[in-house]
Simulated assay, not measured.
Amino acid sequence: MTAALFDLTGKTALVSGASRGIGESIARLLAAQGAHVLCSSRKLEGCEAVAASIRADGGSAEALAMHVGDAAAIEATFAALESAGKAPDILVNNAAANPYFGPMLDMDLGSYEKTVEVNLRGYFWSTVQAAKRMRAKGGGAIVNIASVNARRPAFGQGIYSMTKAGIVNMTEGFAKELAPHGIRINAVLPGLTDTKFASAITGNPKIMGMMMQLIPMARAAQPDEIAPAVLFLVSGAGSYVTGTTLTVDGGYLA
């Protein structure tokens, strides 16, 4: 009975930013629970390796290129999936950009625009494209990967934090609109996680020393510690959960 709550057999799940880190862990876990996983990122090669590894482990997966900073690419991807009968039942918006680390006053406009285009506009437009097709299918589940920075902006990550706060607000707004169509949408707020994306922090001993004083569990998370939160939210176990944020941060926001 308990295992059945997490069974995703017959579901198609699109995970953006699935070539490494948190996205890869999410893709692997959803596939392990029976979903056919569409591993996407801007560059196809990394996702092909992840999808091949999932298949080698007995799962079902394929790779596709989708740059979430390009609205036209998002539209084309979802249109092609629909034509192929693969419109996703599950969407995990995970791809993110953080091209600048430093004071907001010194940030150039190009870095600002890239951060907003990927983290906010990309999540929004991917959600719109997925939800329209989920509505036609009678339901679905969406999870947006935000960050603890949505609640507590971090020094050197001001604009990144701003976009993550926007993702939380967007999630709550969509939840009210999509619930009548059988579509649930939630956000996961990871804390510091040991990934290449977070290497500006995890690779800096001074910053890590300060972070360890702020995290009660005194360590960074591993990507596979974030993925189960996503599984809960997209599975039957989370059938009455929408518009919420699930924090996975070792106690940082406590």
Rank of each mutant, 00 (worst) to 15 (best):
N169E: 03
D89A: 14
L231I: 08
I201Y: 01
G236P: 03
A27I: 15
R55T: 13
D108V: 13
G85P: 11
E117D: 12
Y100V: 01
L109V: 14
S53A: 14
F197G: 09
A51K: 04
V116I: 12
S60H: 09
S40M: 10
A97P: 00
L8R: 03
G156D: 06
T193W: 00
P88D: 10
S25C: 07
K137L: 11
L253E: 13
A32H: 06
K114L: 03
D249M: 00
M107F: 01
K43C: 05
P99M: 09
A87S: 13
R20F: 11
I22K: 03
A84V: 11
R135E: 10
N93P: 01
V168Q: 02
A227D: 02
S60I: 01
R152F: 07
E225L: 04
R42I: 06
M217W: 14
V128C: 10
A31L: 03
L5N: 13
F124P: 02
W125D: 03
S53T: 06
T163F: 01
S83H: 07
K86Y: 07
L8V: 04
P216Y: 00
A95C: 09
N119Y: 04
K176G: 15
D57R: 05
R55Q: 13
E45M: 05
A35L: 12
T244N: 10
K43M: 06
G122L: 14
K137A: 15
S199E: 04
L5E: 14
C39T: 15
M211V: 04
N149M: 12
V168S: 04
E48Q: 08
S16T: 14
T163E: 00
T244C: 05
V188Q: 01
I145G: 14
N98M: 10
M162T: 15
K132S: 11
G238V: 12
R135I: 15
H36P: 13
C47F: 08
T245S: 15
N169Q: 13
G85K: 08
W125F: 14
V118W: 02
N204A: 10
N93A: 15
V92L: 11
G166Q: 04
V68I: 15
L109F: 14
C47E: 03
P216C: 09
R151M: 11
A165H: 07
R152G: 06
K196E: 15
L109P: 09
R55H: 12
D89G: 08
A227G: 02
N204S: 12
A76S: 06
T244Q: 11
V234N: 07
P223W: 02
G191Q: 00
T247A: 13
N98F: 11
G34E: 03
A18T: 00
K132M: 13
P228R: 09
K206D: 06
D194I: 00
T245G: 15
A198L: 03
V168K: 04
S239W: 12
V50E: 00
V143N: 10
N204M: 03
Y160L: 02
V116E: 05
A76P: 07
K196F: 09
E48T: 00
A84S: 13
R20K: 09
S111E: 08
K196W: 03
T202Q: 05
L38N: 01
A218D: 14
G138S: 12
A51T: 08
V168F: 05
